[in-house]
Nucleic acid binder design. Structure first.
Lengths: 202, 202
DNA sequence: CCCTTCGTGATACAGGTGTATCATAACGGC
DNA sequence: GCCGTTATGATACACCTGTATCACGAAGGG
């Protein structure tokens, strides 16, 4: 084996293995040996790159977060340059629904982490509060701009609409995750909501 | 010790201990010994009343479900006899938001179970799909009735509105659970939504 | 009054877990 | 061409977990 390997890439490989495993068997079944096997490396290697299991779990969470951010940015870039607010909103919602398998895996593991964070204070604060907060703020501003440009009925409260949109989206996401409704049906409900928000079809 | 004890009550006591523990330290830290200690009984007793850990977890979940059902029924009974649809809807939503500490504990543990069920097939199907489905159907009918009585704008689609309401509610619930927003703020968003649904304040 | 059954305690056991230790190979700088 | 740092393998070690076993007290039916 060569002496100097790309640490970042190795860590990413191992983190990916963890996520795959967590998506398949549940985050609570994840073990150091399991991750090592899934990644095709020795237990010692996992220990080497992540000193402790807590560190591994934490790193994998950050890994997920970065991936999600990247996907979201890519989706934004795919939009026409002066993006109509409605397109922006729809892109946001589409990304946050577990549509295909990879997306489902991501949301499943993310949700498992969120459940863990409910009682694990040192895992909690950052991603599951700050992230949504930033998103909600961003969306609020977009809606406010849209209102000034007349794309939105003036009686709507941007902050409330933003909160409503994101909560609805999240709720639909989990209902898809547990298998209560299909992704298509969730998307339909979302479209219904967005239609009303922008004052169409009423 | 007397020879014949009330099995059901003992099981309830132990299940309650499990829920308390799970609410405090997370469902993933729950152990047979831990439950025994929390309930103030011996490990053997937990083993005696629930043969296996899986059985214990399952029983505690059913216990939670029954409790939730009872609370929900009580809230319904407290309503005026010909309940206005809006009151009905508001009662539904109030019950599903983690307002006080007991309710928070319940929703926290319930959510942990839901996360587990995402990857554990034999735990999954019943409560997390059938329950919400029944609720959604019930709500749809209530909205349909309200529409015929003119309490609701005729352009609303009862099925879609019902799905929207419950998803929104669930989304808000989890955002309260993770500490992103306060229960009061969630209730405000909910009121905003219900106002629009019933055509008020617009 | 005995004896079968129910309830409960103490303890043991095997397996899996995170983590630590020891050794050693591969490479780059001098 | 040696040497120290980096990277990796093999193995050991406590510890905790779920579960099983053994023993015994208490009660009610015959």
């Amino acid at each position: 084996m060569p002496r100097t390997v790309d640490h970042a890439q190795r860590r990413a490989t191992i983190a990916d293995a963890l996520v795959r495993l967590a998506a398949r068997q549940g985050l609570h079944t994840v073990t150091m040996r399991g991750v090592a096997a899934e990644a095709g490396v020795s237990l010692r290697l996992v220990q080497y790159y992540f000193e402790t299991k807590a560190a591994l779990l934490h790193a994998a969470l950050l890994h997920l977060e970065r991936q999600s951010h990247a996907r979201w940015q890519a989706r934004l870039r795919a939009l026409p340059s002066p993006a109509p607010t409605r397109r922006f909103v729809e892109a946001l919602l589409a990304e946050a629904l577990p549509a295909d398998d990879p997306s489902r895996d991501f949301h499943l593991v993310w949700t498992s982490y969120a459940a863990l964070a409910l009682t694990d204070p040192e895992l909690a604060a950052q991603p599951f509060v700050a992230g949504p907060n930033r998103l909600e703020q961003q969306l609020t501003e977009a809606l406010r701009d849209a209102e000034e440009r007349g794309e939105l009925p003036a009686c709507a409260d941007p902050a409330a609409e933003s909160a409503r949109l994101l909560a609805l989206n999240h709720g639909l996401g989990t209902s898809v995750l547990v298998g209560q409704r299909s992704a298509a049906s969730a998307a339909a409900v979302l479209r219904y909501h967005v239609d009303r928000l922008f004052g169409d079809e009423r």
